[in-house]
């Protein structure tokens, strides 16, 4: 019975350790991260030092509970001591965030680990865990947006049809217009116009493969968004438009495939971060 109690308590404590990373904020403001973070990420730094530091803190904090569950108190204490060190290091790395850190709670937590009393350790973990959660609530999204997502706005793309170089946003508008050139004409029964528009739309859509490679090093991502399914959808649309009597059911099914494979999957992944970046860029412009 005693063993079960310990197991349940350990599980609860691990849960407590994880909980602070979740956001309960009602209003979310994605503030731009402080400048001093620049030196902790490429290209100023050759590694993602801040991420490494977060892993270090999290690893030692979690290490206390793993060892506690195994009754390995010697290592639990080592982890607790290293947690305090790495927590302090993190505070020093970004002075603008010093108020997020509660060194006294961190110290108390490490002290309680020495008591080898799971309940006391769990209680002491709460306040220090909350400091992590508060910072994550306020800053996590901003940091990821700034340092892990290159700005789509800075991507330039040469239109394969008229060979003009356009900013990515403009290119997407052009692509959207080309898409409508196909679908609107098809809806109106003007199949010749739809066919002509499809040639340009296909070229512009397939050009998106080169956009993937502006950030991604592997080719698999191209296949995910602009892969075989999209190519087959284009073939199907062409086949319908080349037939004497195009079948609308088939045609719209292929349009749907393109919309899902290319547009939706990409927007679902990239759009939210791009919106935050766009707002920051607008603010930056306004400041100038």
């Amino acid at each position: 019975m005693k063993g079960h109690y310990k197991l349940a308590l350990t599980a609860l404590l691990i849960l407590l350790a994880v909980l602070p990373v979740q956001s309960f904020a009602k209003d979310m403001v994605a503030k731009e991260p402080p400048k001093s973070l620049d030196k902790l990420y490429p290209p100023v730094n050759k590694e993602q030092k801040w991420v490494q530091q977060m892993h270090k803190i999290s690893g030692h904090f979690g290490g206390v509970f793993v060892d506690m569950g195994e009754q390995d108190w010697e290592n639990a204490e080592k982890h607790a001591a290293r947690f305090v060190e790495s927590y302090k290091e993190a505070a020093d790395m970004v002075p603008e965030w010093k108020d997020y850190f509660d060194h006294e709670s961190a110290r108390k937590f490490a002290e309680e680990v020495k008591t080898r009393d799971a309940a006391r350790i769990g209680k002491a973990a709460g306040p220090v865990g909350k400091t992590c959660g508060k910072c994550h609530d306020d800053q996590y999204l901003s940091v990821w947006t700034r340092y892990h997502w290159p700005s789509a706005d800075k991507i330039a793309i040469t239109d394969p049809v008229d060979e003009k170089e356009l900013k990515y946003g403009k290119y997407m508008s052009l692509l959207s217009g080309a898409f409508k050139g196909v679908t609107v004409n098809f809806g109106e029964g003007q199949y010749d116009r739809a066919k002509k528009a499809l040639g340009g739309f296909k070229k512009r859509f397939m050009e998106l493969k080169s956009v993937c490679s502006k950030c991604h090093t592997g080719d698999a991502v191209k296949q995910f968004y602009v892969g075989e399914a999209s190519a087959q959808a284009f073939d199907g649309m062409e086949a319908e438009l080349n037939s004497p009597k195009p079948n609308p059911g088939n045609f719209w099914k292929h349009v749907g495939t393109l919309g899902y494979e290319g547009c939706k999957k990409c927007h679902l992944t990239h759009r939210a971060y791009a919106i935050v970046q766009e707002i920051w860029e607008e603010k930056e412009e306004a400041r100038k």
Binding site: Q52, K56, G59, D67, N75
Partner: peptide, 9 residues
Amino acid sequence: PPCKGGRGD
């Protein structure tokens, strides 16, 4: 401790 699955740092 890291050998039990902790961080390389």
